[in-house]
Protein backbone atom coordinates (compact mmCIF):
# COMPACT_ATOMS: atom_id res chain seq x y z
CA UNK A 1 0.00 0.00 0.00
CA UNK A 2 1.13 3.49 -0.85
CA UNK A 3 1.16 5.01 2.61
CA UNK A 4 2.12 8.42 1.27
CA UNK A 5 -1.07 8.36 -0.85
CA UNK A 6 -3.10 7.37 2.23
CA UNK A 7 -1.65 10.35 4.08
CA UNK A 8 -2.44 12.72 1.20
CA UNK A 9 -6.00 11.35 0.96
CA UNK A 10 -6.44 11.82 4.70
CA UNK A 11 -5.19 15.41 4.64
CA UNK A 12 -7.15 16.53 1.56
CA UNK A 13 -10.36 14.72 2.57
CA UNK A 14 -9.96 16.09 6.09
CA UNK A 15 -9.46 19.64 4.87
CA UNK A 16 -12.64 19.43 2.77
CA UNK A 17 -14.50 18.37 5.95
CA UNK A 18 -12.87 21.23 7.86
CA UNK A 19 -14.37 23.66 5.35
CA UNK A 20 -17.79 22.10 6.04
CA UNK A 21 -17.27 22.40 9.80
CA UNK A 22 -16.31 26.06 9.48
CA UNK A 23 -19.44 26.68 7.40
CA UNK A 24 -21.59 25.02 10.11
CA UNK A 25 -19.97 26.96 12.95
CA UNK A 26 -19.46 30.36 11.37
CA UNK A 27 -22.38 30.79 8.97
CA UNK A 28 -26.12 30.33 9.22
CA UNK A 29 -26.17 27.91 6.28
CA UNK A 30 -28.24 24.80 6.95
CA UNK A 31 -26.59 21.45 6.38
CA UNK A 32 -28.70 20.91 3.25
CA UNK A 33 -27.36 24.11 1.75
CA UNK A 34 -23.80 23.23 2.66
CA UNK A 35 -24.22 19.91 0.84
CA UNK A 36 -25.48 21.75 -2.22
CA UNK A 37 -22.55 24.19 -2.05
CA UNK A 38 -20.13 21.24 -1.97
CA UNK A 39 -21.74 19.45 -4.91
CA UNK A 40 -21.91 22.64 -6.97
CA UNK A 41 -18.32 23.52 -6.17
CA UNK A 42 -17.34 20.05 -7.36
CA UNK A 43 -19.30 20.53 -10.58
CA UNK A 44 -17.62 23.88 -11.26
CA UNK A 45 -14.11 22.64 -10.44
CA UNK A 46 -14.76 19.48 -12.47
CA UNK A 47 -16.17 21.41 -15.42
CA UNK A 48 -13.18 23.74 -15.46
CA UNK A 49 -10.87 20.73 -15.42
CA UNK A 50 -9.29 21.66 -12.11
CA UNK A 51 -10.67 18.87 -9.90
CA UNK A 52 -8.81 16.12 -11.74
CA UNK A 53 -5.49 17.43 -10.40
CA UNK A 54 -6.86 17.11 -6.87
CA UNK A 55 -7.99 13.55 -7.68
CA UNK A 56 -4.53 12.64 -9.01
CA UNK A 57 -2.96 14.10 -5.90
CA UNK A 58 -5.27 12.75 -3.21
CA UNK A 59 -7.30 9.88 -4.71
CA UNK A 60 -10.16 8.92 -2.40
CA UNK A 61 -9.49 12.04 -0.34
CA UNK A 62 -10.95 14.00 -3.26
CA UNK A 63 -13.39 11.48 -4.77
CA UNK A 64 -15.27 10.39 -1.63
CA UNK A 65 -16.34 13.84 -0.30
CA UNK A 66 -19.36 15.47 -1.94
CA UNK A 67 -17.19 17.66 -4.14
CA UNK A 68 -16.08 14.39 -5.79
CA UNK A 69 -19.72 13.62 -6.55
CA UNK A 70 -20.07 17.05 -8.17
CA UNK A 71 -16.93 16.42 -10.20
CA UNK A 72 -18.38 13.10 -11.36
CA UNK A 73 -21.56 14.86 -12.54
CA UNK A 74 -19.50 17.34 -14.56
CA UNK A 75 -17.15 14.73 -15.99
CA UNK A 76 -20.04 12.42 -16.91
CA UNK A 77 -21.83 15.23 -18.68
CA UNK A 78 -18.75 16.27 -20.66
CA UNK A 79 -18.02 12.65 -21.68
CA UNK A 80 -21.63 12.02 -22.69
CA UNK A 81 -21.75 15.18 -24.80
CA UNK A 82 -18.71 14.02 -26.76
CA UNK A 83 -20.37 10.61 -27.27
CA UNK A 84 -24.04 11.44 -27.79
CA UNK A 85 -24.01 15.14 -28.47
CA UNK A 86 -26.80 17.38 -27.16
CA UNK A 87 -28.68 14.59 -25.34
CA UNK A 88 -25.58 13.96 -23.24
CA UNK A 89 -26.24 17.19 -21.36
CA UNK A 90 -29.19 15.47 -19.74
CA UNK A 91 -28.05 11.85 -19.51
CA UNK A 92 -24.36 12.16 -18.71
CA UNK A 93 -24.32 13.43 -15.15
CA UNK A 94 -26.70 10.99 -13.56
CA UNK A 95 -25.37 8.06 -15.63
CA UNK A 96 -21.86 8.67 -14.34
CA UNK A 97 -23.10 9.05 -10.78
CA UNK A 98 -25.54 6.11 -10.99
CA UNK A 99 -23.35 3.81 -8.93
CA UNK A 100 -23.20 6.27 -6.05
CA UNK A 101 -26.88 7.16 -6.16
CA UNK A 102 -28.14 3.56 -6.39
CA UNK A 103 -25.74 2.42 -3.67
CA UNK A 104 -26.91 5.24 -1.38
CA UNK A 105 -30.56 4.24 -1.83
CA UNK A 106 -29.82 0.53 -1.49
CA UNK A 107 -27.63 0.73 1.60
CA UNK A 108 -29.89 3.38 3.14
CA UNK A 109 -32.80 0.99 2.79
CA UNK A 110 -30.82 -1.96 4.20
CA UNK A 111 -29.73 0.19 7.15
CA UNK A 112 -33.32 1.24 7.84
CA UNK A 113 -34.35 -2.41 8.00
CA UNK A 114 -31.76 -3.46 10.54
CA UNK A 115 -31.51 -0.36 12.71
CA UNK A 116 -33.71 2.00 14.67
CA UNK A 117 -33.11 5.75 15.01
CA UNK A 118 -32.05 6.90 18.46
CA UNK A 119 -31.94 10.15 20.34
CA UNK A 120 -28.72 12.12 19.97
CA UNK A 121 -26.33 12.18 22.87
CA UNK A 122 -25.25 15.73 22.09
Amino acid sequence: MDWFMVLKAFIVGGLICVIGQILIDKTKLTSARILVVFVTTGVILGGLGIYKYLLEFAGCGASVPLTGFGNLLAKGTIDAISEKGFLGIFTGGVTAAAGGIAAAVFFGYIASLVSKPKIKKQ
Binding site: D25, S31, A32
Partner: peptide
Protein backbone atom coordinates in the same frame (compact mmCIF):
# COMPACT_ATOMS: atom_id res chain seq x y z
CA UNK B 1 -35.27 21.13 11.62
CA UNK B 2 -34.06 17.83 10.19
CA UNK B 3 -34.98 14.22 10.90
CA UNK B 4 -32.47 12.66 13.29
CA UNK B 5 -31.73 9.94 10.73
CA UNK B 6 -29.86 12.59 8.75
CA UNK B 7 -27.28 12.72 11.53
CA UNK B 8 -27.11 16.49 11.33
CA UNK B 9 -24.81 18.60 13.50
CA UNK B 10 -26.41 21.19 15.74
CA UNK B 11 -25.03 24.73 15.61
CA UNK B 12 -23.85 26.32 18.90
Amino acid sequence: RFPLELGNQRPP
